[in-house]
C-alpha cells in the first residue's frame, strides 16, 4: 500500500477564497495508513484548502495527485435530511457510493438505538455522529475532514478517534482540520506560515483581480 500512487501529494499549491489567495506554496503528502492534522487560526484557509482538495473549487496554482475516486469529504454541514431516518440517510449515501457498509457504520458510531429515528429529531452531537458515519459508508480511502468533532462529547470523540484508527489500520488515511487533541498518532501540518502575501507582480493575475492593478 505504500506505492506513491496511493498517496495524496500536494505540490506548491495556492488556494483562493473569493478570488483572493489565502494560502500559498503548500506542499505536503499524505501516505496510506497515516493521519495528518491541519492546524491554523480561524480564517486561515483550512476549509478552503479542504474544499480545493475535494475538487469543489479549482486551485489557483500548483498541482495535486491522488488515486482516482479516493476522496471522501466531510464538511462543516452534515448534509442530513431531517425527514429521513438515520438508516435511510446512510442507505442513500451507500447507494450513491455503491457500497454496502451501512450496518458497520451504524454500529461503529453507536447509532443502533437511533436507526429508525428521523434525523431531524437527533441532538446536535447525534447528528454529527451520523454525519461522520457517512464516511464509513463511502468506502473511500482518503478522508478530508473539516472540524469533525464539533458538538461531540468526550465519549463520541473517543468513538470518532477509534473509527479513524480502524480506518488507518485498514490502509486508509485522513486529513483532519481540528483544534482538539484526538489522541491519534498523527503528524501535524500548520498552515500559518503559508499565509498568502499580497502579490506584487501584476503578471501573476490569472482568475483574480491582480490583473486590474
Amino acid at each position: 500500500m505504500n506505492a506513491p500512487a496511493d498517496a495524496l501529494v500536494v505540490r506548491d499549491m495556492t488556494v483562493a477564497r473569493g478570488g483572493v489567495p489565502v494560502l500559498a506554496g503548500l506542499s505536503f503528502r499524505l501516505d496510506p495508513g497515516r493521519v495528518l492534522i491541519l492546524r491554523g487560526p480561524n480564517g486561515s484557509g483550512k476549509t478552503t484548502l479542504l474544499r480545493t482538495l475535494a475538487g469543489l473549487q479549482p486551485a489557483m496554482a500548483g498541482t495535486m495527485s491522488q488515486p482516482a475516486e479516493a476522496i471522501a469529504y466531510g464538511a462543516h454541514a452534515d448534509g442530513l435530511k431531517a425527514v429521513l431516518t438515520v438508516e435511510e440517510n446512510l442507505r442513500f449515501w451507500a447507494s450513491v457510493y455503491g457500497t454496502d457498509a451501512v450496518e458497520a457504520a451504524i454500529s461503529g458510531f453507536n447509532l443502533t438505538g437511533l436507526r429508525s429515528r428521523a434525523a431531524g429529531n437527533l441532538s446536535a452531537g447525534q447528528k454529527r455522529r451520523l454525519g461522520l458515519a457517512r464516511l464509513l459508508v463511502t468506502g473511500r480511502p482518503i478522508w478530508l475532514l473539516d472540524e469533525p468533532t464539533v458538538s461531540l462529547d468526550t465519549a463520541s470523540v473517543a468513538l470518532f478517534a477509534d473509527a479513524v484508527r480502524a480506518h488507518v489500520a485498514a490502509g486508509g488515511s485522513a486529513l483532519i482540520a481540528t483544534h482538539i487533541d484526538l489522541g491519534l498518532e498523527a503528524e501535524v501540518f500548520d498552515v500559518t506560515p503559508y499565509k498568502a502575501q499580497a502579490a506584487t507582480d501584476p503578471a501573476a493575475g490569472g482568475s483574480f483581480d491582480e490583473a486590474f492593478l
Binding site: 474544499r51 475535494a54 475538487g55 469543489l56 475516486e69 476522496i71 471522501a72 469529504y73 464538511a75 462543516h76 454541514a77 452534515d78 448534509g79 442530513l80 435530511k81 449515501w93 450513491v96 457510493y97 455503491g98 457517512r134 463511502t138
Partner: peptide, 11 residues
C-alpha cells in the same frame, strides 16, 4: 444543509 457539496464530491 451541505448535501450539494457532498453530492458534488460523490461519484
Amino acid at each position: 444543509d451541505g448535501s450539494l457539496d457532498l453530492l458534488a464530491t460523490a461519484p
